[in-house]
């Protein structure tokens, strides 16, 4: 048994789409696999923890993305060191956009990213709202997308999912970036409860062979399978139009 240390960055500012749920899923699945888990919240100005096996950054409005930008940039070396040491980094929505080279905004200005991912984000006038399903090496990624952004990801190998239904966040019909221990997604629901296969991929990177699922995981995953089936059914038939105000 090992202790898994999960660090959630800026849970108050970047935590509007169930981001605690992603943290909770990682913690619960690791515990059910027999590990101790410590979850630590890090806010603006807090020291970066010496130990971190999984780092989670959530979603928030542009104002929150701007509010954390400099603080996150100051943690750049720490993030890179943890990543090269084998930690997993999972980021959603606005938080994920900060890991790219930058975010180009509708008013012609941009927000500089950390450049951890070879990608760039353009905020778009149209909003993508609805169910999304994408084929990945780990199985089907399913969830809800709700964002006004398009990622450009030149390296085809970094594109994790090919969209089967819905629109997806990456130009060309893709969704989610996965490269060397970093997962960056626009999938909500939130993503990890609906996608135990992705949660397990993140935990396998952090824990290695010490992570294996059990019957207790299966007791939860029956609900995930049923919820996923319903979403896949709806994704094929239901279309949303964001109301323009």
């Amino acid at each position: 048994m090992t202790t898994l240390r999960i660090v959630q960055l800026y849970p108050d500012l970047l935590g509007i789409t169930g981001d605690r749920g992603n943290v909770d899923v990682l913690a619960t699945r690791a515990r059910l696999a027999g590990h101790d888990v410590v979850v630590e919240s890090v806010g603006l100005g807090d020291p970066s923890p010496a130990e971190a096996d999984v780092i989670v950054i959530g979603n928030g409005p542009l104002s929150a993305v701007r509010a954390v930008r400099d603080d996150l940039a100051a943690r750049s070396a720490w993030l890179s060191a943890k990543r090269s040491g084998g930690a997993s980094l999972f980021a959603v929505g606005g938080g994920a956009e900060l890991l790219t080279e930058g975010i180009d905004l509708l008013d012609g200005t941009s927000v500089d990213g950390l450049g951890m991912l070879a990608a760039r984000v353009t905020r778009t006038r149209t909003r993508k709202v609805g169910y999304v399903v994408a084929e990945t090496v780990d199985g089907r990624l399913v969830g809800f997308e709700d964002h006004a952004s398009e990622w450009s990801v030149p390296d085809a190998a970094a594109r994790y999912g090919r969209v089967a239904a819905g629109v997806g966040g990456i130009a060309g019909g893709f969704e989610t970036v996965a490269v060397d221990g970093v997962w960056a997604t626009n999938v909500q629901g939130p993503a990890l409860p609906l996608n135990p296969q992705l949660a397990d991929a993140i935990l396998l990177r952090a824990l290695g062979d010490a992570y294996a699922t059990t019957g207790a995981h299966e007791a939860i995953d029956v609900h995930a399978r049923a919820a996923r089936a319903e979403i896949e059914r709806l994704a094929a038939s239901k279309h949303f139009t964001a109301i323009k105000l």
Partner: peptide, 11 residues
Amino acid sequence: EGTPDVSWLYD
């Protein structure tokens, strides 16, 4: 389905 995205259930 009147409530399309239930991500917030986890908050």
